[in-house]
Nucleic acid binder design. Structure first.
Lengths: 184, 184
DNA sequence: CCCATATAGTTAGATTATCTAATTACATAC
DNA sequence: GTATGTAATTAGATAATCTAACTATATGGG
């Protein structure tokens, strides 16, 4: 997940950056006739940007030895703490992954004492999962950096651009959450 | 990478969707004073959207037994074909990953006959990597779906929204590519 | 001309994040 | 009270990355 690692040695000949032009040319030749190519271009940049955003956030979090996806889970636990019964199943449902994948995440987090798993008395099949005091402390340490990274992603936009951008983002994200059937 | 897998059985009690409100409340308590919280909110949604976009694209590509990142590499090879000497090193440099990671990708692609690796005569240490006819045929098959998926990401936006969104996206992506030191 | 060092690529072995299938334990309904 | 459903875990796989070590080739200075 680490972009731009230190060079193994010094550098070599590079490939020139192509930019978007050749992608668009290829699109003209290979897109179905009913595809809106202007929209596809936009979607392509969005895909690239999303990729870069994840890389940057994980890079900024790496000094805390946590990834964006694990931070996401800790946040989930923190925000539901004392509200609802959180179980591996409900986590899996929310994150759109398998229960067994959640088990792996929980084992990892529990090893670091950031969460607590305890049997749920009212139904012996279930496990109650919650964030631990140590986990909450970790959040206190990580979140200032996390929010600052989030802000840095869009800080070069002016107030007006941010306003328009926000409306578009919210709209797109709602739509895609519906398509995927999972969301926050 | 697969979101929303078929349920293992039928469903269980779900966690309520929180929306953004509790995240913003938490941000108020935990952001550094110099962080622009409006921007951070925007960045957070962008991060979520990026995550969802990658999931959706990989989902749409899964029937072709290829992931977005491998398709990206095939596209890279296709667009540079006959132009520049493409080697594992130059690919690694471009993708911002290690040479050894590139070797793994190339082995996987070569096994399927989608690329050709051959020794480079002018420098015996190098390997010339190029897309094979079979690889090009695969692209022909996959790309219509890929472009259509890209388009579907933003198709609900009206013409005007798309116009503004595009300018913002291009700006943000340029900036983040500079920060990461890699880009297309 | 040879050797030291740099570079290209691969291999070995690890980690993270996912999956499916099988297993264990508990709950419930007929 | 047995069959079936559900919750969680385990076992084993794959993908995408990493670092470290290794092999082979290239090159520049004595």
């Amino acid at each position: 997940m680490q972009r731009k690692p230190a060079k193994e040695y010094t550098t070599e000949q590079q490939l020139p950056r192509l930019g978007t032009a050749p992608y668009l040319k290829l699109m003209e030749r290979t897109a179905a006739s009913e595809t809106n190519q202007y929209a596809a271009h936009l979607g392509l940049i969005m895909l690239w940007l999303g990729d870069n955003v994840l890389d940057l956030v994980d890079h900024d979090l790496s000094s805390f030895d946590i990834t964006e996806s694990k931070l996401d889970l800790l946040l989930l636990l923190s925000l539901h703490d004392g509200q609802e019964l959180v179980t591996p199943s409900s986590i899996a449902d929310r994150l759109g992954i398998r229960r067994s994948s959640v088990t792996s995440l929980l084992i990892w987090l529990e090893k670091r004492n950031w969460i607590i798993r305890e049997p749920y008395a009212k139904d012996g099949r279930m496990t109650h999962v919650r964030i631990s005091p140590e986990g909450s402390m970790l959040l206190q340490q990580v979140l200032p950096t996390f929010w600052s990274t989030c802000a840095s992603l869009v800080e070069e936009l002016n107030k007006e651009e941010q306003e328009v951008f926000r409306n578009v983002l919210v709209k797109l994200n709602k739509n895609i959450e519906n398509r995927l059937g999972a969301g926050r």
